Simulated scan of single mutants.
Amino acid sequence: MRENVWFVTLTYRGVDDWQPRHVSKCLKAARRWCQLRRVPFRYLWVACGIRAPLNTQSTST
Protein backbone atom coordinates (compact mmCIF):
# COMPACT_ATOMS: atom_id res chain seq x y z
CA MET A 1 0.00 0.00 0.00
CA ARG A 2 1.39 3.39 -1.00
CA GLU A 3 1.07 6.28 1.43
CA ASN A 4 1.34 9.97 0.75
CA VAL A 5 2.35 11.57 4.04
CA TRP A 6 2.48 15.32 4.63
CA PHE A 7 4.09 17.22 7.47
CA VAL A 8 2.36 20.56 8.00
CA THR A 9 3.13 23.25 10.54
CA LEU A 10 1.60 26.61 11.33
CA THR A 11 4.50 28.99 11.83
CA TYR A 12 4.16 32.63 12.80
CA ARG A 13 6.61 35.47 12.31
CA GLY A 14 5.52 37.58 15.28
CA VAL A 15 4.19 36.62 18.68
CA ASP A 16 0.95 38.52 18.07
CA ASP A 17 0.33 37.02 14.61
CA TRP A 18 -1.43 33.98 16.02
CA GLN A 19 -5.21 34.27 16.21
CA PRO A 20 -7.83 32.04 17.82
CA ARG A 21 -9.26 29.41 15.46
CA HIS A 22 -6.20 29.29 13.15
CA VAL A 23 -5.64 25.63 13.94
CA SER A 24 -9.29 24.62 13.74
CA LYS A 25 -9.71 26.46 10.41
CA CYS A 26 -6.61 24.78 9.02
CA LEU A 27 -7.81 21.33 10.09
CA LYS A 28 -11.27 21.99 8.65
CA ALA A 29 -9.80 23.02 5.29
CA ALA A 30 -7.48 20.00 5.19
CA ARG A 31 -10.33 17.66 6.12
CA ARG A 32 -12.49 19.11 3.34
CA TRP A 33 -9.64 18.85 0.81
CA CYS A 34 -9.26 15.17 1.65
CA GLN A 35 -13.02 14.53 1.49
CA LEU A 36 -13.20 15.99 -2.01
CA ARG A 37 -10.41 13.64 -3.12
CA ARG A 38 -11.73 10.65 -1.16
CA VAL A 39 -8.57 10.18 0.81
CA PRO A 40 -8.40 9.52 4.55
CA PHE A 41 -7.64 12.46 6.80
CA ARG A 42 -5.53 11.58 9.82
CA TYR A 43 -3.49 13.87 11.99
CA LEU A 44 -1.37 13.88 15.08
CA TRP A 45 -1.41 16.86 17.39
CA VAL A 46 2.00 17.75 18.80
CA ALA A 47 2.34 20.79 21.01
CA CYS A 48 5.49 22.11 22.56
CA GLY A 49 5.89 24.87 25.05
CA ILE A 50 8.79 27.21 25.42
CA ARG A 51 10.12 27.43 28.93
CA ALA A 52 12.37 30.02 30.43
CA PRO A 53 15.84 28.74 31.30
CA LEU A 54 16.36 27.61 34.86
CA ASN A 55 18.22 29.99 37.10
CA THR A 56 21.43 28.14 37.96
CA GLN A 57 23.02 30.89 40.00
CA SER A 58 23.33 30.27 43.72
CA THR A 59 21.49 32.72 45.94
CA SER A 60 22.96 31.53 49.23
CA THR A 61 24.78 34.08 51.42
Rank of each mutant, 00 (worst) to 15 (best):
2 R>Q: 14
4 N>R: 15
4 N>A: 10
5 V>G: 00
5 V>R: 11
5 V>L: 14
5 V>I: 15
6 W>A: 06
8 V>N: 03
8 V>L: 11
8 V>P: 00
9 T>H: 04
10 L>N: 02
10 L>F: 02
10 L>P: 01
10 L>Y: 01
11 T>P: 00
11 T>L: 09
12 Y>H: 08
12 Y>I: 02
13 R>L: 12
14 G>S: 15
14 G>C: 12
14 G>K: 15
15 V>G: 02
15 V>A: 13
15 V>F: 12
16 D>Y: 09
16 D>H: 08
16 D>W: 03
18 W>T: 05
18 W>G: 04
19 Q>K: 14
20 P>R: 05
20 P>A: 10
20 P>M: 03
20 P>D: 09
21 R>D: 15
23 V>N: 04
23 V>H: 04
24 S>T: 13
24 S>N: 13
25 K>A: 08
26 C>R: 00
26 C>M: 10
26 C>I: 00
27 L>S: 00
27 L>E: 01
27 L>K: 04
28 K>F: 03
28 K>H: 08
28 K>E: 12
28 K>N: 08
29 A>H: 05
30 A>E: 00
30 A>Y: 00
31 R>C: 04
31 R>H: 06
32 R>S: 07
32 R>C: 01
32 R>L: 11
33 W>H: 10
34 C>I: 02
34 C>D: 02
35 Q>E: 14
36 L>P: 00
36 L>Y: 04
36 L>S: 08
37 R>M: 04
38 R>L: 06
39 V>Y: 07
39 V>C: 09
39 V>M: 13
39 V>F: 07
40 P>V: 03
41 F>W: 08
41 F>T: 02
41 F>G: 03
42 R>H: 13
42 R>T: 10
43 Y>I: 04
43 Y>D: 01
43 Y>N: 06
44 L>C: 10
44 L>H: 09
45 W>R: 11
47 A>S: 13
47 A>V: 12
48 C>N: 14
49 G>N: 12
50 I>G: 06
51 R>K: 14
51 R>D: 14
51 R>Q: 13
52 A>D: 15
53 P>S: 09
54 L>C: 10
54 L>E: 13
55 N>L: 07
55 N>S: 09
56 T>D: 12
57 Q>S: 13
57 Q>K: 13
58 S>W: 03
59 T>P: 01
59 T>F: 11
59 T>Q: 12
60 S>K: 13
60 S>M: 10
61 T>C: 10
61 T>G: 09
61 T>L: 13
